[in-house]
């Protein structure tokens, strides 16, 4: 009996050793995230002024800013959202609510899982061949936005499906029992109830898009742009202009990349400052996503 007690003690000792290892393994990531943020903040803080946000890039590091970069990022994101959200949500709804189990839906499913694993730069190459040279959109905001839309499409589809799948069948049956058609059921029940999950997925997708660098380098984002795209509103009839879609562009991560790769210390300060803003954007978007998920989970209880 003593032998057994000794053994138990030893087993429990091993188990608690692992408790520490496991906890440390979990914390190491969090710790590094903190270090990363602090390091970035210390490096970039001196450059973080209003002027930094409202100046164009420049050869003189102290005068350089990120105006064209953040405007570019927002315009690209706008195009990305406009393209990826309707298609992604529609595809998700089709696969969950309409698609019968046959070879086509099977292939689509495998395909989407596979697309999610394709490196982002490969999307860049696709866009270079397809949008820049085949459709002749040029190295433009439109191309950049569509490229990132391709990239986040699988994410939007998967988020939509997951969130629709969580709706119990009884809701559908109740709706059909009242004589609603499929689309009415989707419109009135499925879509509103899954909105929280879908929004969460969309925001996380967009936050990924805003930080993506590689694919938009391949489609020809420029690293030095000292002007803004053409304004979308004009004084002449019809007052709306889409010329900006075909303007060349830069974006936040591109600007940061450009500054990081310069040897001068001053430019690296700019890089850190741009990095802080980029991080803040991503953190806000992810925080929003977590909040929405939490809110909707609380509101709807099956």
């Amino acid at each position: 009996m003593n032998e057994l007690k000794k053994r138990i003690k030893y087993n429990k000792f091993l188990s608690s050793i692992f408790l520490i290892i496991g906890l440390l393994s979990t914390l190491v990531g969090l710790f590094l995230l903190t270090v990363l943020f602090v390091d970035l903040f210390i490096d970039g803080y001196p450059r973080l002024t209003y002027k930094f946000l409202t100046s164009f890039p420049s050869r003189i590091p102290e005068k350089a800013g990120i105006l064209s970069a953040w405007v570019g990022s927002f315009l690209i994101l706008f195009v990305t959202a406009l393209a990826a959200i309707p298609i992604g949500v529609a595809a998700g709804i089709y696969l969950e609510e309409y698609g019968r189990k046959n070879w086509i839906t099977n292939i689509i499913e495998i395909n989407i899982a596979n697309l999610a694993g394709v490196p982002s730069i490969v999307y860049g190459l696709l866009a270079l061949g397809l949008f820049v040279y085949f459709f002749k959109f040029g190295e433009s905001i439109l191309t950049g936005g569509l490229t990132l839309a391709l990239l986040i499409l699988p994410m939007v589809i998967m988020a939509t499906r997951e969130s629709i799948r969580a709706i119990p069948n009884s809701i559908r049956e109740a709706s059909y029992a009242l004589g609603a058609t499929k689309w009415q059921t989707v419109q009135w029940h499925i879509f509103p109830y899954s909105l929280g999950g879908i929004l969460t997925g969309i925001i996380i997708g967009l936050s990924r898009a805003i930080g993506e660098t590689a694919p938009i380098i391949t489609v020809g984002a420029l690293t030095f742009i000292a002007f803004l795209p053409s304004p979308p509103i004009t004084s002449d009839f019809p007052f709306l202009s889409f010329k900006w879609l075909f303007d060349p562009f830069t974006a936040m991560p591109i600007q940061m990349f450009n500054w990081v790769s310069r040897p001068q210390k001053e430019f690296q300060v700019n890089a850190a400052a741009a990095g802080i803003i980029l991080m803040i954007m991503t953190l806000i978007m992810n925080g929003l996503a977590i909040y929405i998920r939490y809110r909707f989970r609380k509101k709807i209880k099956w």
Binding site: Y94, I108, N111, L115, V122, L126, L153, K182, W183
Partner: peptide
């Protein structure tokens, strides 16, 4: 109307296959 909507949704779902196909085509072509 129901049929039209279903077809539109289907087109969106199938578009993902076209992405893969165009990746393969563009990469192979060049």
């Amino acid at each position: 109307k129901e049929r039209i909507i279903e077809s539109l949704l289907f087109i969106c779902a199938v578009s993902s296959i076209f992405i893969t196909l165009s990746i393969v085509v563009v990469l192979s072509y060049e």
